[in-house]
Design a protein around this nucleic acid. Structure first.
Lengths: 198, 198
DNA sequence: AACGTTATGGACGAAGCAGTCAACAACCAT
DNA sequence: ATGGTTGTTGACTGCTTCGTCCATAACGTT
């Protein structure tokens, strides 16, 4: 009944994410996104509404992806819960260290730039962080059931601590900490988690 | 021999800092700073050079202030080293929670926005972070000498961990974590630091 | 095939932006 | 006091950028 779109919406969102990720929200121009995607501005505005809406789409999708990926890495049986936690924490440190361009995490970057002025971004970031905390708490509780961590510790508190360490690793990566420092933090954080006393 | 300045340079820097802090680098306009300080743009450019240089001045000064404040809070005799560490960690959590406007830390915000594209900002942030790490390490070593923390632990590693937790608290504050969560993280982090075994 | 509907692309408008400039003002050394 | 030097002001320039608009293109339905 009408002319179909020539572009793949997902592909455009991916490209837009790269642009916003590299430059931040304010410094990214819609013309850049148009050029990078090959779309005319009319199509871009027609399909997504505007710069802010486009960023919201990108940010929302990124948050969803982060939480999904983490869920895949942390969910599983009690038996391997500690191994998963350890692997995850080390993976975040390694990924941060490997990010030589120091782009960091779009969740952190977007939140830092826009939380104060954009309610939607603030809410979305909060939801994502809360989801990550829950995933960590579930895994830590599994570790406790399996006897890998002290049963009398508060899993929620430990999850919040680990989450803070992870976000801190990310922040220190931005500040140019080297790989050894970052992996060292991961190692130390895991080492200080309370063990069963028997 | 020449006309003296009518404005206080420090006051202008303070005002500029507020502007950059609230809006970020890209979103802050020189006209805003001019209006907020009451200076004409000519004076502003004459005294500071341009937007980038002005931000460098502000950022440098902010980093210096952060490190100085931390040094005042952490330096002292071995006897009270642990009390100082505890007070400092809790103070950061409380300050982050109290920051209802969620402006966060200019060091983190500036680094997140500009590290990739501005070498000077990257270097300055790195230096500041390294200084903070050293201050923490010195205090932690003092704690060990005084028997408040396990002597066999690596003070450098513990310092890096605590620093990560602190930066993580800051990041979680941006994401809207409530006061209870933040102070809980501070409490848990201190609780998991290794104690002497005797 | 003709038509209604939606997509496309790029020129355009309007506002915003960093930075400049020239006329004027204030100071001090002589 | 006077002149040289530096600070001040705000209008101005030239460029950038968001968003719109419209002529045209491509599709499905009848």
């Amino acid at each position: 009944m009408a002319r179909p779109r020539k572009f793949d919406e997902q592909q455009v969102l991916d490209t837009a994410r790269e642009q916003f990720w590299a430059g931040g929200y304010a410094a990214t121009r819609m013309d850049d996104i148009a050029a990078a995607t090959g779309l005319g501005k009319g199509s871009l505005y027609g399909a997504f509404g505007g710069k802010q809406e486009l960023f919201h789409r990108v940010f929302d999708e990124y948050c969803r992806a982060i939480v999904d990926t983490t869920a895949q890495q942390l969910r599983g049986d009690d038996k391997n819960a500690y191994a998963r936690l350890s692997a995850y924490v080390h993976a975040v440190a390694a990924a941060t260290a490997a990010d030589t361009a120091q782009r960091g995490c779009l969740l952190a970057k977007g939140a830092a730039e826009l939380t104060e002025h954009d309610e939607k971004v603030a809410k979305r970031a909060h939801t994502a962080i809360e989801a990550l905390r829950t995933l960590l708490e579930d895994d830590i509780a599994a570790c406790q059931r399996n006897g890998d961590l002290a049963a009398d510790a508060d899993p929620g508190a430990l999850a919040a601590l680990v989450l803070a360490v992870l976000r801190g690793i990310e922040a220190l990566g931005k500040a140019g900490a080297n790989e050894e420092t970052l992996t060292g933090i991961a190692r130390t954080a895991l080492a200080v988690l309370p063990r069963p006393t028997d």
